[in-house]
Amino acid sequence: MMNAVPISWFLTLSAILFALGVAGFLFRRNIITVFMSIELMLNAVNLSFVTFSYQHKEVSGHLFTFFVMVVAAAEAAVGLAIILTVFKGRSTLNIDDVNSMKH
């Protein structure tokens, strides 16, 4: 059963997920969507980590996954707070309108 699903499938899935995340990050304008895209990329990476960890019989991949999950959680908390503040201040979630840090 172990050999039923080849490793490359997992990796392909991870790559697809990551590419979706990148595309979402680049093309969507809603900050929430952009944020979700980032989470998608992180999870794509997590998937690769777990895959390689399984393949190499090496526990550090799992460890990294947990790290990434914690970071993602923290990021979600901070990021959502920032998004809330931005929305409060500007009444918009369009990412192209939030460019006052220029210069």
């Binding site: 990412i95 006052s100 220029k102 210069h103």
Partner: peptide, 17 residues
């Protein structure tokens, strides 16, 4: 070089990509 610093997050992301 300042022209790169457009303030547009998606352009930054494009550069990263």
């Amino acid at each position: 070089l300042r022209l790169l610093q457009s303030g547009n997050i998606r352009s930054y992301a494009t550069w990263v990509l």
